[in-house]
Design a protein around this nucleic acid. Structure first.
Lengths: 122, 122
DNA sequence: CGACTATTGAGACTCGATTATCATTTATCT
DNA sequence: AGATAAATGATAATCGAGTCTCAATAGTCG
């Protein structure tokens, strides 16, 4: 594979994904054999360092990465294929959950269940 | 320490905690030196197996455990002390986030920020 | 093309979390 | 008390995720 553009390849793959990808998922999407896992990790690390990428944790699935320039959103984790999907929109009433004296700076919402594809395959 | 009751000791410690505890947190609460880490893990494993305990993942803190018989609730993760606190109540509008064709079976909400104590200590 | 630098792939290595091993200790039963 | 079974603690072993090393390769420039 032509070199020098692999960093971009990683960015593009994340940009086109329907949700955040883990290093391994990304690796296999890039063709496993064609790109080294180390290179994927390197690209991810650089991306996070320069602010292009952002690492997110979706419960149960370890660390995943997504472009930083996405609007505020949450994720849906399919318990069958274990893939994380981006969701749109947010929820109401989060403030009311915060105990007195606590200061909330952010939040995460993860929905679990089965995705379109897995639900049909069942 | 008297044996045979350590399993119960673990259960009690989790029951009295203000949030889910990781194996390490639990271990240190039980007095580090008095109980072996292996025993803590054993008790947790058995607890989960027999349904008494439940393992939960709170972003950024790995796996934690809590009694299964708690009402539906969510967690607040303090980004300073890294402790997870139980919250009460839930949020509205989750269903509207689910994409067509997806089936939601559960959800998690995690608030981030600073807890009472850490906010005051700052 | 030839010299020089940046990037890569494979695999060795590190690190933390969890599990397995095993001799020892506590409980149980008689 | 004596024999047997269950639980424990210390530590070794394992496992996965991520990082580091280094020789080989692609890109650059003259």
């Amino acid at each position: 594979m032509s070199r020098a553009k692999q960093q971009l390849t990683v960015y593009r793959a994340l940009g086109e994904a329907d949700g955040p990808l883990s290093a391994r998922e990304l690796w296999s999407r890039l063709g496993g054999a064609g790109v080294g896992l180390a290179t994927v990790y390197r690209a991810l690390r650089r991306g996070v360092a320069d602010g292009t990428l952002k690492s997110v944790e979706v419960l149960g699935g370890g660390v995943r990465y997504e472009p930083r320039n996405r609007e505020h959103h949450h994720h849906f984790l399919c318990s069958i294929c274990n893939h994380a999907f981006d969701l749109f929109g947010c929820v109401e009433g989060l403030e009311s959950l915060v105990p007195d004296g606590f200061q909330m700076t952010g939040h995460e919402v993860v929905l679990r269940g089965t995705c379109d594809e897995c639900a049909n395959a069942a």
